[in-house]
Design a protein around this nucleic acid. Structure first.
Length: 235
DNA sequence: ACACGCCCCTGTTAGC
DNA sequence: TGCTAACAGGGGCGTG
């Protein structure tokens, strides 16, 4: 084990397990590990005897003959050493507000959007504006709020920002209750599929009728990402 | 500061 | 049936 890693981890207790946006972190007294699962990563606790399989990249040795195993087929994920205050340094320090934290509301969103001409969806996906919103929930929140994904962010009046902030919080909270959205790989911590996919209004439903108005759901490419939306409900 | 496009990589699936 | 191309949930970085 590299010396710095050894000095931080070996024999020492994990003081904190945390999350900021989509980054996870494990914190020891002298440093921490940032972990991001990217699009296809997973962390599982496995017995020592379980042999590593294809795409298993890292084991953290735990007490009781267990291991925390990081797997990431697509390698869009990340494990990186950081200091003892991971929240205080990039990339975590650069993240915008947590959408489910107290104080996240339309006023905060309006302030972040002010003067910006980029499409509102692009800003929702930008962690520096709001932390942790991915493509699925950006699409869903915009639909729920009745906002066109390509509308210049700065053109949204405050009341629409209020509605959008509320939609973001509702969609995320509901998705968490349902155990997340399993399209293919994603599993809950318990290894089960997440059931929010059944509740998606537009994401992955190109050509199907909008659940609000019946018009066919569109899928346009915006900033290189699939963008599902209803051209009647979302203005 | 901001907007935009491209890149990383592998696996699955749609289409021919 | 088998091959190829397109696409996928994310984020960082370079350019203008």
């Amino acid at each position: 084990m590299p010396e710095r890693l050894d000095r931080i981890l070996a024999g020492n207790r994990v003081e904190e397990v945390g999350r900021r946006g989509k980054f996870l972190f494990l914190r020891w007294r002298r440093g921490s590990l940032l972990i991001h699962l990217g699009m296809s990563g997973s962390l599982r606790v496995v017995p020592d005897r379980a042999p590593p399989e294809r795409h298993d990249h890292l084991d953290l040795l735990l007490p009781r003959r267990l291991r925390l195993r990081f797997r990431d087929p697509r390698r869009f994920g990340l494990v990186r050493l950081a200091g003892p205050k991971p929240l205080a340094e990039p990339p975590l320090a650069d993240l915008g507000p947590e959408p489910l934290a107290e104080g996240f509301d339309g006023v905060v969103l309006r302030r972040a959007f002010r003067g910006r001409r980029a499409p509102v969806k692009v800003l929702l996906l930008d962690g520096r504006v709001v932390a942790g919103i991915g493509n699925i929930y950006a699409c869903e929140a915009l639909h729920r709020a009745g906002v066109r994904p390509d509308r210049p962010a700065g053109s949204l009046a405050e009341r629409r920002c209020v509605r959008l902030a509320g939609a973001i919080r509702e969609v995320l909270a509901r998705a968490i209750e349902a155990g997340g959205t399993t399209l293919r790989d994603f599993r809950t911590a318990g290894g089960e599929a997440g059931w929010f996919r059944r509740e998606l209004s537009v994401y992955g439903r190109e050509g199907e009728p909008c659940p609000s108005c019946g018009r066919r759901v569109r899928n346009d490419r915006l900033a290189g990402r699939s963008t599902f939306w209803c051209s009647r409900c979302q203005t």
